[in-house]
Amino acid sequence: MALLEVKDLRTSFKTEDGIVKAVDGVSFTVEKGQTLGIVGESGSGKSVTCLTIMGLNAKRTTMSSGEALWKGKDLLRAKSSELRKIRGDEMSMIFQDPMTSLNPVHTIGKQLVEAVQLHRDVTVRVAKARALELLKAVGIPKAEGRIDDYPHQFSGGMRQRVMIAMALINDPDLLIADEPTTALDVTTQAQILNLMKRLQEDFGSAIIMITHDLGVVAETADDVVVMYAAKVVEHAKVHDLFNRPQHPYTWGLMGSLPRLETDTERLVQIPGQPPSLLRPPSGCRFHPRCPYVMGVCRTTEPKLLATERDPSHLQACHLDQETKDREANKLIESTMAEVG
C-alpha cells in the first residue's frame, strides 16, 4: 500500500468575487521513503494541494472533495481530532518563510518541546533532551546554549534548520516541504538541501518537495508532478521529465530558465499571464498561452494519460506523439548544449 494516495483532489475557496477552484482534480501517490517534487508557478495550486492533505485550509471558506488516503485512511473524511494526531507526528510540514513561521514570543526550545508533548506522553525533560538531539542533528552550532533563545536571535538559515528539527522531531513518515529554500540565499539553500538529503537517509521519511525551481526538483525528486492552473499537466520520473518532457508548458518552463551551464542569447518565453482561476479558460487551460494550440485544445480538456512508450509518464496534451518527441528533442538539444 502506498503511504499517501491522492485521488481526484479538488479544493475551492469562496471569495468575494466568486468561487476559486484552486485545485481541480489532482491525483498522485507517494511511496515510503520516496521524494515527490511538485513544480508550478504561483497560483498553480501546488501549495493548496498539500495544505488540503494536511487539513490546514481555513474551514469556513474551503470546500474539498476527492480522497487523500494516508496508509489507507481518507484524511478528507477524518475527524479533526484524528487529523491532529497524524499531523506533526506521522506527517509534518515546513514552510517557505522561516522568518515568520516560528512564534516570536516563545523560545525555540519551548516550541520544540510542544511538538513532542502534543504527541508523546513524556516529561518536559525527556522532550527537551529530544529537542536538543534534533537541534544537533540539523546542525545548530552550540545547540545546548541556544535552545532557550528566541527565534529573532537566529538567522534565516538557522531558523529553517529549527523548522526542520521541529518537523522531524517525532520521526514522521512524510515531510511536506513547501518552498523550503525559496526565501534563502543560494549558499544557505545548498546547506538546507544537503541537510534534507542527509536527514532523509537517516530518518527514512518520504518527502513532498513543493517548489517553483526546476533546479531544486532535478536535484532532489524521484518523481515530479508539474501543475498548471490547478491541474496536473505532466507527471513522470525525474529523468524522464527532464529528458523527454511531453507537455508544452513543461517545455516553456525549461526554456524560460536562464542556465549556468549553457549559452542562450534569448530565453524561450511563455507569452501572456497565468489565467484567473475564477474563470479558467475552456478546454486545455494552457491553450491561450500555448504556441502549438489546435482547434481541439479550445474545446476539449485533455485527459492525463500515459504516453505510448512509458506507462509511468503521464501527460495532458492533445498534440500527437511525433510532434511532442520532435519538440522535446529540439528543446533538450538547445538547453543541453555545453558551454564552449
Binding site: T187, Q191, G215, A218, F242
Partner: peptide, 20 residues
C-alpha cells in the same frame, strides 16, 4: 556557482556541491 541547483538530474546529481 556550485550551490546553484542545476535543472538537469544527471548533471545536477553527478557533481558535488561545495557547501559553505
Amino acid at each position: 556557482l556550485s550551490a546553484v541547483p542545476i535543472p538537469n538530474p544527471e548533471r545536477g546529481r553527478a557533481r558535488e556541491a561545495i557547501v559553505l
